[in-house]
């Protein structure tokens, strides 16, 4: 089966010789048709540069990429007809109404709102009561829905969403991911970037990216399985002192706060009992230790630390 997106050794550098910033240092991956593929990493990791290259808005310095079988440099016009792109920053016309924005994007792609209405129906119905309102006057959540409709109006084969959920609260984030699952049902390939590690589990496969390099590509389950060491969740009455004491304990590879617990990555030779005895001896009370499954954030932290 042909891949929907192929990136091969993409390199992008900004700035002058003196102060050079390498945004992408040789990024390669493939996305299968119909996949939800997550690019997960913090600000400055290179996510936006990557998306701009794949949507033909930026030329790579090195490497090649294809979208839907077309080359991002040679066949940029073909790609622009076939992909949908929702940039991280709201980029619709603020002084056009909701409906006017949608009509405008439809006419640019030589289509009509009606032609592919099925695709956007569920999303558009949520903002339709405000169709005469200027886009600039919409709330953040409604802007996001309108931008998604505009990116879908020509029924793209591949949809690029650059940080659609950044700065969005937990409830709206959940709703947005439900919309993406519905689009996947309709056969659209989705590339989505996010700084939120917990969104990894909602993707079919993810690439973890940091400092312009992909650290790992796998299914969310595969990423978690590759975590090599036993992981404990520990708590005690005084969490701040607990962290300081854990950091002093030689039997660990790493420890860091994780919600209501501190996570502890044990060295292979360290036992839970050994750690418990140490914490007792340090005078901790209400100490609780339990083995837990790592999640994608644990894996990201481990990968970041082995990289440096």
């Amino acid at each position: 089966m042909n891949a929907a997106v192929i990136a091969q050794n993409l390199v992008k550098t900004y700035g002058t010789k003196k102060e050079e910033v390498q945004a992408l240092k040789g990024v390669s991956f493939e996305v299968a048709p119909g996949e939800i593929f997550g690019i997960i990493g913090p600000d400055g990791a290179g996510k936006t540069s990557l998306f701009r290259i794949l949507t033909t808005l930026l030329l790579p310095d090195e490497g090649q990429a294809q979208v839907d079988g077309f080359d991002v440099v040679k066949d940029y016009e073909a790609i622009r007809h076939r992909v949908g792109y929702m940039p991280g920053r709201f980029s619709l016309y603020q002084d056009l109404s909701v409906e006017e924005n949608l009509k405008f994007f439809a006419s640019i792609f030589h289509t009509t709102i009606r032609e592919h209405y099925e695709l956007i129906k569920d999303i558009y119905e949520q903002i339709e009561p405000f169709k005469d309102r200027r886009a600039g006057k919409l709330s953040g959540g409604m802007k996001q829905k309108l931008a998604l409709c505009c990116a879908l109006i020509h029924r793209p084969t591949v949809l690029f969403l650059d940080e659609p959920t950044t700065g969005v609260d937990a409830v709206s984030r959940k709703e947005f991911w439900e919309m993406l699952r519905n689009l996947k049902q309709q056969g659209i390939t989705i590339l989505v970037s996010t700084p939120y590690m917990d969104e990894a589990s909602l993707c079919d496969r993810v690439a973890l990216i940091q400092n312009g390099e992909i650290m790992s590509i796998d299914t969310p389950e595969g990423i978690v399985r590759s975590f090599e060491h036993p992981l404990l969740a520990v708590r005690a009455a005084n969490m701040f002192r607990l962290l300081k004491d854990l950091q002093q304990f030689p039997g660990l590879l790493d420890t860091y706060p994780f919600g209501e617990y501190h996570h502890v990555v044990l060295k292979p030779e360290t036992t839970e009992q050994g750690l418990y005895a140490y914490l007792q001896q340090k005078g901790h009370t209400e100490t609780k230790l339990q083995q837990v499954e790592p999640n994608v954030e644990d894996c990201f932290i481990a990968l970041m630390k082995t990289a440096t």
Binding site: T166, G167, P195, Y256
Partner: peptide
């Protein structure tokens, strides 16, 4: 006000250490 938005998970924790 949202001091850690978009910050990587390691730095986010270092930041919280400074808060403590």
């Amino acid at each position: 006000d949202e001091p850690t938005g978009g910050v990587d998970p390691v730095t986010r924790r270092e930041f919280w250490n400074m808060i403590y």
